[in-house]
Design a protein around this nucleic acid. Structure first.
Lengths: 228, 228
DNA sequence: CGAAAAGTTGATGGCTTTCAAGTCGTGTGG
DNA sequence: CCACACGACTTGAAAGCCATCAACTTTTCG
């Protein structure tokens, strides 16, 4: 496992006191192919969720946390990183989470690798891995910071989003047992069952038969997801 | 986002009833460089946590769940995958989680890519991504299935493991505020504080000063981690 | 049809959160 | 050097959400 020394390094900067978590991000930009080293003090923002992802970073020494924040302010750290570890890798054009130093840290920044430089199979695998990481980040927020109802709703909406890519009629198959849903969402079968019954009673979803359902009130569901 | 159709496909197999979760895994092995397609019924085990990771898989159609199980039986699904998505990618020699079909599924299996076939920089990145995924899987179990005390203990043990790679004296810096720990572990600062105080009172950890501590009873801690 | 598995619903309890007050530690300024 | 102030941390009390336990209903499949 990669070493994560949470030990502070000495940064010759004058002001030693870290900015609060609301610190502005620093632009340690590196041009084209030239790697560049940037020093950060503790609790400095490297980039924020939604920022353009032009760079990827490698920790020389220090430590970095990656986190996501829900609209109502709930925060979930999704990764803790130490020397040698990389972050800022993404398959999208923007970062899916924010990055902030925990201690004084030096980062090496590089431009993102161009997929044309590597075999297609390898590129596809990297893309898949990055997609995986992004999905796991989202799921981490669900498990760490969402209520039972929010988890179930988030799950249903994700299912709908995925299914609709294929079939537009809106009918979605719930090809999982309650136990599997519970084990995915970090809940018990009873809580999942109660949440689904509640959503059905409130008219937000409709069970067509067995394990098929469709969404009757998408806006209503989205309000319950914790994501808006 | 990759499409995850949870729709069942028709498998001409005679017995339609899926085996229970305790199903034996199937060896859909592919030789050397030849990709091979294998059909699975619903709730069939593709591989188990700890199995040798000789293959990687791509879902042609169907759906697969990846999960981890704690020694006492608590289960946490760590990924839900649909058509086009890959799994079984790992930087280690064995799988860090089990894979089971949710519905009838066809999988294309390939041998794992050899790092010598691609540029070193790309290989390093893939390795990092796979390490990330593995860490996120572990964290998913912590958030989904562990109690507050188990989360805090797991966190301390991980910190110790990482720090000890560098310094063997056993003294570990806790370079995070209680709020950051709480946001990492999906708890509140009060719960984190209470858990740490409890561990200190019970003599399992000792706070040397400010944010430095060391483990006084590793076995005792491990028993509280939920991992044994 | 009957048994077993899956799902639902209710009652209760426990763990964690919330709210609140107090303590500790560090940096500042008199 | 010490008093003060502010933030970080700790501790207590009470509430709330979800888990647990239990009974029942529904579905599935031989």
């Amino acid at each position: 496992m990669v070493d994560l020394s949470l030990e502070s390094i000495e940064i010759p900067a004058g002001k030693k006191v870290g900015q609060p978590a609301s610190a502005k991000r620093r632009e340690g930009a590196s041009d084209a192919a030239s790697p560049m080293v940037t020093a950060f003090r503790e609790h400095e923002l490297v980039f924020a969720e939604g920022d353009a992802a032009s760079q990827r970073y490698e920790i020389i020494d220090g430590a970095v946390m990656l986190f996501k924040v829900l609209p109502d302010g709930r925060r979930q750290l999704v990764e803790l990183l130490g020397p040698g570890e990389m972050f800022g890798l993404t398959c999208d054009d923007e970062h899916d989470c924010s990055a902030e130093t925990l201690v004084a840290t030096r980062l090496r920044s590089n431009r993102r690798l161009d997929c044309s430089e590597v075999p297609a199979a390898v590129c596809a695998m990297c893309q898949q891995l990055q997609e995986k990481v992004k999905n796991l980040h989202e799921h981490t927020v669900i498990l760490g910071r969402k209520s039972a109802m929010e988890r179930v709703v988030s799950f249903l909406l994700r299912l709908a989003e995925m299914s609709n890519a294929k079939r537009a009629n809106g009918h979605i198959r719930l090809a999982m047992t309650r136990q599997e849903m519970a084990d995915y969402l970090g809940l018990t079968i009873e809580t999942v069952s109660r949440s689904l019954s509640d959503l059905r009673r409130r008219g937000l979803i409709v069970f067509d038969k067995a394990d098929w359902f469709h969404i009757a009130d998408r806006e209503g569901l989205e309000l319950l997801s914790g994501d808006c």
